[in-house]
Design a protein around this nucleic acid. Structure first.
Lengths: 402, 402
DNA sequence: CTGTTAGCGCATTCAC
DNA sequence: GTGAATGCGCTAACAG
């Protein structure tokens, strides 16, 4: 990876492009899906006249004094060429004379010209917009994914519209419809549980979509994530190997949440395979909040024979569970082992540090971005991507005592 | 405010609007800035034909078999009226006969009609799009704000384009330009440090903008947040009142970050006012990461006379600081008091629980949303909003020993 | 290589 | 109340 080279480049070109360039080699280069624009170069650091502001004006504007928004024609006039040529320059069309190109660029910056995205989109059917619908940004695991997704997209000047469904597939459909109306060219979703209408709408309109946090691709949709059932099994295996017999789980709310449900299923499956009676495995569900974990723990530990090991559907739940133990004087992991999921930054803040299953959130975002940016042909090879899960063993789990 | 009416409407139409409506009374109702559309009602739960998908097609489409995207004219034909009338129905124009209206709605749902946002935007100059530029989504404090901002906007079917600047004002300018090109009708920014070109561009094009996390409004821009200097002073005051004399700070990186800088300045100011020599107050800066806090703490505690109280620019830094103490066998707060900032969920995960200054992130997002949705006239009364800061005293701070 | 000609899909004047 | 006409600003054919 040519880290040094890029840093050099960056310094030469000044600061505004810095980030974009410096991270571009983290992912494959996909030139066709969303080709680069040159307009950026032309109009970025333009100085604007600050004094003319605050003039409210109705739709049809044309007072002579109104230099406000130059249009493509104005640029053409100033550059002494046709609108078509200006358009070509803007779109980086190579077959324009060097001289004209420069005159156009100059005229554009002089006028402070900013292209009208709506007109462009209407005419070209390319909006350079993608959408993402996630459950919430309030959970770090999604925020992190979106962050890297957005970063990847911004490298190609593609903007992202984000909406949150609060784990509700009906709301998701509503938002998907709005995104389609906005003309997004592709959509990222979370998980594989969606209203059939949502998918049908996207497929009918030929809008590619990608699932994240799951590896279950559909016939036409892609999936970039991991196998949640496997994740649950991995957790179970680990606790079993530690010698635990009384094992429980605090899952996330499984309604409309296939990831939470699959993790639980895989977990139970593996335990049952190892001889545990399915009904002997206490499972409670709680929201992804510290308080949820605390409450879940309380419910679990109220049993006559409380579990010696507990798998939590998220680190945040695990943190709440540990907190409950502190309050009740239970020692972790001596009295009870706690296993988390996600490997959020907070996994290092609990006492003891949390053993957890790491979810590759950042990587998912980047790769999902690559998928959304790809051409249809390229997408064929990217339809399914199962990223590895990693068990991060820290101090909240231990072999069963005695 | 016709709150009750709205709720009624919602129930009749099924679940998808529920959440949206149910939280709308947390904020004032602003009807004019972004008026409601009715199109939502008409096309939300439509069933689409899944089988016709995956047909790639060039721009001009018109094969008879291509039912793919019905346009407004098609709806008009099917409803037996003029395009103008369909448009009126879509835009909730009251002067359309009830009979026609229903026929139009039916025709639209039958055809699976979805309006073309670009065309609409081009013609009406209303995109129903706003932008937000934040440093990063990887910091919970921003993710939370964006989450509530997006939630508020979605209640009015306004979409949000998010981009991240990574604390770089040049990158911010670049993104602002792109947002303007996309036609956003308003923009939310973080803090009050921006390139003059950025603001000039927005002002020249008459795009309202609002600062968050600060209360420093500009001549034309609004600010919804809190006073960072005051926040720093509050922190200092608290530690002083606890009797501490050797006080230090681990600030965030202050470059391009007025919030971090102001907090530090306010903090120092108050200490100096109380007789401490400015040069006697150790200040280090670190990234908003646990590791940053740990490193900062190490630097601070290496002094001959280490501080007895430390103010951290963020809870995440404070968590790292506490972690360092654990590792080194230092007791918090006996040996050293740690004061955080933000009141993230993690403030309850440290041992001991973290005393911190609470930042109203969620509320800022909601109110900023209100501002962006408001009409120009309404905005006059919302130009500046200083939200209260609250000191949340927990267990990581104590009076100076002896 | 460059200019000319036509719309993209819709909302908004106006008439009626 | 409703319809007919007219562009919004831009890009894509097609000529030359």
């Amino acid at each position: 990876m040519a880290e040094a080279d890029d840093l050099d480049t960056v310094k030469k070109h000044g600061s505004s492009q810095t980030f974009v360039k410096s991270i571009s080699h983290f992912s494959i280069s996909l030139s066709t899906g969303f080709p680069e624009y040159s307009s950026k170069l032309a109009f970025s650091t333009k100085t604007f006249d600050k004094s003319i502001s605050q003039i409210r004006r109705p739709h049809p504007v044309n007072t002579e004094t109104d230099r406000l928004d130059a249009k493509l024609v104005d640029v053409a006039k100033r550059a002494g060429c046709s609108p078509a040529t200006v358009s070509r320059v803007l779109n980086n069309n190579p077959k324009v004379g060097l001289g004209v190109r420069e005159r156009v660029l100059k005229a554009a910056t002089d006028l402070g010209y900013v292209p009208n995205g709506s007109a462009r989109a209407l005419r070209s059917t390319r909006t350079r917009l993608v959408g993402a619908i996630i459950p919430t940004l309030d959970h770090a695991i999604y925020a992190t994914m979106v962050n890297s997704l957005q970063t990847r997209l911004s490298e190609r000047d593609v903007s992202i519209i984000i909406s949150t469904s609060f784990y509700d597939v009906d709301m998701e459909l509503e938002q998907a419809r709005l995104l389609v109306e906005r003309g997004v060219e592709a959509i990222a979703l979370v998980g594989s549980t969606h209203r059939p209408e949502t998918l049908a709408m996207l497929e009918q309109r030929n809008i590619p979509y990608v699932y994240t946090y799951t590896s279950d691709a559909t016939a036409v949709g892609a999936a970039i994530g991991f196998d949640n059932v496997k994740a649950g099994r991995m957790a179970a295996r680990y606790l079993l190997d530690l010698g635990h017999k009384r094992i429980a789980m605090i899952a996330g709310i499984t309604r409309d949440n296939d990831r939470a449900a699959s993790r639980r299923n895989g977990f139970l499956e593996e335990l049952v395979k190892s001889g545990l009676g399915k009904t002997d495995i206490p499972v409670v569900e709680s929201a992804y909040k510290i308080e949820g974990g605390r409450a879940g723990m309380q419910a679990l530990m109220a049993a006559e024979q409380p579990p010696s090991a507990i798998f939590c559907g998220s680190d945040i739940i695990a943190a709440g569970a540990i907190k409950y133990c502190h309050d009740k004087g239970l020692s972790v992991p001596r009295d009870v082992s706690i296993l988390g999921f996600d490997n959020l930054e907070i996994a290092e803040l609990t006492t003891p540090d949390l053993t957890t299953v790491e979810v590759p959130a950042r990587e998912m975002g980047t790769i999902a971005g690559d998928y959304l940016l790809a051409t249809p042909a390229q997408r064929e090879h990217m339809r399914q991507r199962e990223l590895p899960l990693r068990l991060v063993v820290r101090a909240s789990t231990a072999p069963i005592a005695r």
